[in-house]
């Protein structure tokens, strides 16, 4: 088991290590202002993002991301459960949902600026709007896919609506809800950066834009590295949470696969 994990870890890691090494040596001693050496990028990254002052740009970003993402998951989950339960409502709203979700989140930025201004509420709303669709549509599918016999069991044992929601519908739909939430997380980071380039006074996106405008190209590269790492870390945290909540699902899937 341990040897297998080590092997999997190695398989996952060798290519990034090779690429970083290639980048490091190829860019060493670079004199191009647009492509600074990796060494100087990392040094700049460390001073910009690994120092106590980094919180000035990091915290506003995380706050914005968390607010918009939380709204998307809660609203998407709640409306998804409603539409997944009431079939007539789902059929009536399906075309509208398909159109809305086809609109790229950043495309509504001008509209949101007109309606909500350029402050924090607009940015939160923009992230929420962009992220809500995968959560919503996956939740609808998850709720509709719940074993009908379980709903009969709930009915015959007189299990009330609230308990049915928490013990049957949400756990039953949880694999799909998590799949939607993971897609939404990637979208949230993209929209966060775009939103922060508008009228901002802080955040990674704001920092990125300022660096570019001040021709601080090494800082700009450093911010891009920071964004990549942020996305990677958030994804790892998400997988840890998912692995805990959906442990039963993973075990059941591997058992079903073993039976084939």
């Amino acid at each position: 088991m341990n040897a297998r994990r080590l092997r999997a870890f190695g398989l996952e890691l060798w290519l990034p290590v090779v690429l970083v090494a290639v980048w490091w040596f190829a860019s060493a001693g670079s004199t191009s202002p647009y492509f600074p050496s990796l060494q100087s990028i990392l040094a700049q990254f460390a001073s910009d993002w690994l120092s106590p002052s980094a919180t000035r740009n990091l915290l506003p970003s995380l706050e914005l991301l968390a607010s918009g993402y939380a709204i998307a998951v809660i609203v998407g989950g709640a409306v998804g459960v409603l539409l997944g339960t009431v079939r007539a409502l789902e059929e009536a709203t399906r075309p509208l949902l398909e159109i809305l979700r086809a609109i790229p989140g950043v495309a509504v930025l001008p509209l949101f600026i007109v309606l909500l201004g350029i402050e924090l509420p607009m940015k939160i709303a923009l992230i929420a709007f962009g992220c809500v669709w995968p959560v919503l549509l996956n939740t609808i599918d998850g709720v509709r896919g719940i074993e009908p016999l379980l709903l009969d069991v709930a009915k015959s044992y007189k299990i009330g609506a609230a308990r049915r929601l928490t013990s049957i519908i949400l756990p039953g739909a949880s694999p799909q809800i998590f799949a939607g939430a993971r897609t939404a997380l990637a979208i949230a980071i993209i929209i966060m950066v775009v939103a922060e380039t508008v009228g901002g006074t802080g955040g990674i996106g704001y920092f990125l834009l300022t660096a570019e405008r001040n021709f601080a190209i090494t800082s700009m590269w450093g911010a891009i590295v920071a964004l990549g790492l942020l996305g990677y870390i958030l994804n790892i945290l998400f997988r840890l949470l998912e692995g805990g909540v959906l442990r039963w699902h993973r075990l059941l899937q591997s058992r079903l696969e073993a039976q084939l």
């Binding site: 016999l149 069991v153 009915k155 013990s167 059941l252």
Partner: peptide, 22 residues
């Protein structure tokens, strides 16, 4: 008119009538 207390049901398909997450 609806399910009543004291009447319990056991279905044929146990794999579908039990919650796999519990």
């Amino acid at each position: 008119k609806a399910p009543v207390w004291g009447v319990a049901v056991v279905f044929q398909d146990y794999s579908r009538s039990l919650m796999p997450w519990s």
